[in-house]
Amino acid sequence: MSAPRRTALITGITGQDGLYLAELLLAKGYAVHGLIRGQHNPKRELVEQLVPDVRLHHGDLTDQSSLLRALRACEPDEVYNLGAVSFVAYSWQNPHVTTDVTALGVLNLLEALRLHSGDDTSAVRFYQASSSEMFGKVQESPQHERTLLWPRSPYAVAKAYGHHLTVNYRESYALHASSGILFNHESPRRGPEFVTRKVSQAVARISLGLQDDLVMGNLDAERDWGFAGDYVEAMWLMLQQDVADDYVVATGQTHSVRELLDVAFACAGIDDWTPYVRQDAQHLRPAEVDRLVGDAGKARRVLGWQPRVGFHELVAMMVESDLAEQKHHL
């Protein structure tokens, strides 16, 4: 007799991680459900196009009753909380909204899950998407699961709240709740407001004569960039463990924004990007995070996870995708 089909619920299904995770779970035979916000969500069509087998439910992380309805409708074995206001710059402009969704949304979902589960709190396994931005003003390098958190943006503070709350519910209610402290992970599906996609899209347009320049902020910031498609596998592996825990997911290598520009422009056949790039102070953060690099040793040892896509391959993938998209519109 074959094992019963497992069911997963994904919040943030419209984001790059949600889409890649849905594809992964469907390939593994899961019944996949997604929470989608808003009656006329403009990204609904993208989800239905890329992962048509996902069943969508209307809900909102700020509305606990809608979360309970979604849990009752799909009775999941696994819940992946990927929903958040995730653009760091936006969090300074709208700190209350960021807090309501990214911080208190975790509370609403954990509490809904606790109420839904009743006495059997370990029956549903929960994943919380934590962030390397929580390390902020880093106290040691590389950063690992025990590194002190020092968040430097409203977004990072909200993520730290959700992270600690996940640990608290695990310890207080015996929930099988794990957090993935994911370092920067990118893909062609990344939103154009994020620096990697902003660069890849601009490079494609500049090379085709559709755009004159690219306005940037801090070119010296260094990040640990990996491929989102690799990182969602780590999420799934966490929920397959007998014991819930927290894991850093990272490549262990850093690259500056200048290196990102070097590689991206080179992919489009432009050796010198300086005539096309200018800096503007309005794109600088009020409190900068200069360098993030993760130690994913625990994920390698316990989960057997490691990244497959390197930095240069990732950037090339994004530039080539944007070139194809921009040519399609010519």
Rank of each mutant, 00 (worst) to 15 (best):
G229Q: 02
E186G: 10
V243P: 14
G217M: 03
A228V: 03
L219W: 01
S187L: 04
W236V: 02
V232R: 06
G226T: 07
R190K: 02
T196R: 09
M238E: 06
L237S: 09
Y231T: 13
D224Q: 06
D224T: 03
L208Y: 04
R205M: 15
F227E: 11
A228D: 08
F194N: 00
W225G: 13
G229L: 08
L219P: 11
E233H: 13
D242G: 15
T196A: 15
Q201S: 15
D230I: 06
L210Y: 05
D224R: 05
D230A: 13
L208N: 12
Y231Q: 07
G191Y: 04
V203P: 09
L210W: 06
M216A: 03
A234K: 11
L237D: 09
P192R: 05
R190Y: 01
A234G: 14
L210T: 08
L210H: 10
E186V: 03
D224Y: 06
V199D: 10
R205E: 15
L210G: 12
R223F: 13
A202W: 03
A202E: 10
D220A: 14
V195Y: 01
M235K: 00
V215N: 01
W225P: 14
S200K: 03
G191V: 02
K198L: 09
L210D: 11
G217Q: 02
G226A: 13
L239K: 07
L239W: 07
L182K: 04
V203D: 12
G229R: 01
L219G: 04
M216K: 02
Q211S: 09
D242K: 14
P192M: 11
L210A: 15
S187N: 02
L208T: 08
G209N: 13
L214Y: 02
S187G: 01
D242I: 01
I206F: 09
D242V: 07
V195L: 13
T196H: 07
F227C: 06
R189K: 14
S207E: 12
G209H: 08
Q211Y: 00
D220F: 08
A221R: 11
D220W: 05
L219I: 05
L214C: 02
S187A: 03
Q211W: 00
V243N: 15
P192D: 12
N218E: 03
D213P: 02
L210P: 10
S200A: 15
V199L: 10
Q240C: 06
A234Y: 08
Q211C: 09
G191H: 14
W236E: 12
G217K: 05
K198F: 03
S200Q: 05
L182Q: 13
V243K: 15
E222S: 14
A228K: 00
F194R: 07
W225D: 15
V232Q: 10
I206K: 04
Q241C: 13
D212P: 12
G191T: 09
E233C: 09
K198P: 13
G226E: 05
A228L: 10
Q241M: 10
R223D: 07
G209F: 05
G229Y: 01
L214N: 00
D224S: 03
N184V: 09
S187D: 06
M238T: 14
A228Q: 10
P192G: 04
W225K: 13
R197T: 05
V232L: 10
F183L: 10
G229D: 11
T196M: 12
H185P: 06
F194K: 00
P192T: 09
E186H: 04
F194P: 04
V232T: 02
L208D: 12
